[in-house]
């Protein structure tokens, strides 16, 4: 999988590149609008991660250009602007997703996976990893072919961990992923802990012991 990250802040760009390279993506990064245009013209990417506030041009123009050229690269906008209008404008310009800064890399990863799934596995709604199998359409999960009864939040949590499998996902990232903006109102992460506890118990019942590990209280990892 080939990614292009367009972000004028080199430090953030490096973080994103590092993170996705660890997940075996082929990741290229550019800092400016000009560079981005030349890369887009010459190559095709599975997904472009685009900061719309670039010093030498507006990322939205780049997006327009991309769509005019009939290129179907997936695009995820990353932006510091968090108003609904900004999001709508971004999506109307042909972006596939919109992520507000500061974001968690695990969240970006999950969104990227979802985008790629939509793009390449049309109609296929199963996600399999090790003993786990998730049906994304019916939102049912099985472990070692045993169905697991999960609540909505638990399913989302499992899917999120699966999308970030073999990576540590911080509890803050989990909270924000599951509760969205509402997690702003939740200063304590006890609810993440209890959700994880329930999920671990249910997985254990179906023979999925030790799938989820806690990493020193920082976050959790689903190891497959």
């Amino acid at each position: 999988m080939k990614l292009l990250v367009i972000e004028d802040e080199s430090s953030l760009l490096n973080s994103i590149k590092d993170y996705f390279e660890q997940s075996d993506f082929l990741c290229e990064g550019v800092l400016t609008y000009k560079e981005a245009i030349s890369r887009i013209e010459d190559f095709s990417y599975d997904c472009i991660i685009l900061d719309i506030n670039l010093p030498d041009g507006n990322g939205l123009k780049l997006l327009q250009y991309l769509r005019q050229c009939k290129k179907d690269d997936g695009v995820i906008i990353i932006s510091a602007r968090d108003s609904l209008d900004d999001k709508i404008i971004g999506l109307n310009h042909g972006a596939d997703d919109y992520l507000v800064k500061p974001f968690h890399l695990s969240e970006l990863n999950a969104r990227l996976k979802a985008l790629l799934r939509r793009k390449y596995t049309q109609g296929v709604t199963f996600l399999e990893a090790g003993s786990l199998k998730l049906n994304l359409a019916s939102r049912e999960a099985t472990c070692n072919s045993h169905p697991i009864a999960l609540t909505k939040n638990e399913f989302d949590l499992l899917l999120y961990l699966l999308n970030n499998k073999n990576k540590v996902v911080s509890k803050q990232a989990i909270a924000e992923h599951i509760y969205g903006d509402q997690s702003d109102n939740m200063p304590s992460f006890d609810f993440v802990y209890s959700q994880i506890k329930n999920l671990k118990r249910k997985l254990k019942e179906k023979g999925g012991d030790e799938l989820i590990q806690s990493i020193y209280g920082l976050g959790y990892k689903l190891s497959i």
Binding site: E9, L12, K101, P102, F103, S170
Partner: peptide
């Protein structure tokens, strides 16, 4: 302030994924 916050957050995520933590 959003930008430096984003950078710190991303670096922290990379750090907690270090195998020798």
């Amino acid at each position: 302030i959003q930008t430096p916050l984003s950078i710190i957050r991303s670096k922290l995520e990379l750090l907690i994924n270090q195998p020798d933590l």
